[in-house]
Amino acid sequence: MMISRERKEWIYKTMNRIRCFELKAQSLFEQNKLRGSVHLYVGQEAIAATVCSLLRDDDYITSTHRGHGHCIAKGATLDKAMAELMGKATGYCKGRGGSMHIADFTKGNLGANAIVGGGIPIATGAALAAKLRGSDQVAVSFFGDGASNQGTFHESLNLASVWKLPAIYICENNYYAISVPVTQSTSVEDISVRGTAYSMPGFTVDGNDVSDIYEVVEQAIKRAREGKGPSLIECKTYRYLGHWLGDPQPYRSRDEIEFWKQNKDPIKRMREFMLECGEFTSEELDQIEQAAAKEAEDAAEFALNSPDPDPATLLEDVFYEEEQ
């Protein structure tokens, strides 16, 4: 798979920005400086970074409760994202959305969603809107293995196929829906085979391998832009941390977690791939990693120093007021 040097660099930068952001969010949470709980994307960074590297600003995404990575990959700045997690007025949603509801319409990010499977029909609707307008925009829905068993998944794929919508459904199968192993909740070994029931291509890829993801997503986007309809892509991956911070994780072993960290880490694998390509030096990749770490630290400082929302603005943005 031929990926340009510039795109490899963008993907690697984005993966590191996501990882550093999430680890900093974990640290702030443990210091009791975040509002509410957070669900972190550590270990799954290759998916959001690779998929969004192939999208335009006017393409759409919908996200999940584990959505920081998608938001960042679709163009969110770390400072405003961190401010949103901390409930600050300088956040993307003025501190009112928090971790699970970040949105930025200027970048096509229609929002994270705390409802399991809630983003799937929203992306389907965005794809329908794009088709009705006659544009070549695409809509991508990110969701987990648990959401593939929701009615919204099946209803959306059915209509997307009937109407040949420019939708791409990305299932991030990290093997656990909260604490339930996918083998105990899902009737098929590969979720991608469900695409067959709705007359659309279904692919299962290594969700921790940038090249594997890139090739299939590029094909799906091309198909969607050409009016040939939707695709279902299952990315098998793994989250290193609990379902939420504080999750005791009795449902899996430390050995299992360490195996993924040591053998399948997406950032480590991407770094090795970039060095093997001969287009990057270790020093260049070190600089990318250091820049991402600094950006996350700066984002935390920005958020910590940002004001809380003014109570007087409580009802702003709640009701639509038509301009006279």
Rank of each mutant, 00 (worst) to 15 (best):
I288S: 02
P166W: 06
G36T: 10
S282F: 10
A127Q: 08
E321Q: 15
E316H: 15
D286V: 09
G151S: 04
A147H: 07
D308H: 11
S156T: 10
A160G: 01
G227C: 01
Q287I: 10
E272R: 13
K13I: 13
S135G: 02
R269H: 10
R56P: 06
I102M: 13
M270H: 12
A127H: 06
S306I: 05
A303T: 00
A177P: 08
I191C: 07
I61L: 07
A103K: 13
C52P: 11
T186N: 14
A103T: 12
K88H: 09
Y176P: 11
G69Q: 12
M2L: 13
E272H: 09
D206C: 08
A83M: 03
M270L: 14
K88N: 13
H101W: 05
S231N: 03
H70M: 02
V38M: 13
D58H: 12
G98R: 08
L157N: 01
E155Y: 00
Y198F: 12
E323G: 14
Q324R: 15
Y175F: 14
N263Y: 12
C20E: 12
C93P: 00
S53E: 11
A177V: 04
D57F: 10
G125M: 01
G97E: 03
Y320I: 15
K13R: 14
G278S: 11
E215H: 13
A129V: 12
Y92P: 05
G43C: 09
I102A: 01
K8A: 05
G98L: 09
R35C: 02
G98I: 09
A299R: 01
K13V: 03
M270K: 00
L23Y: 03
L40A: 01
R269C: 09
T124R: 04
E218I: 04
Y251M: 07
F105N: 07
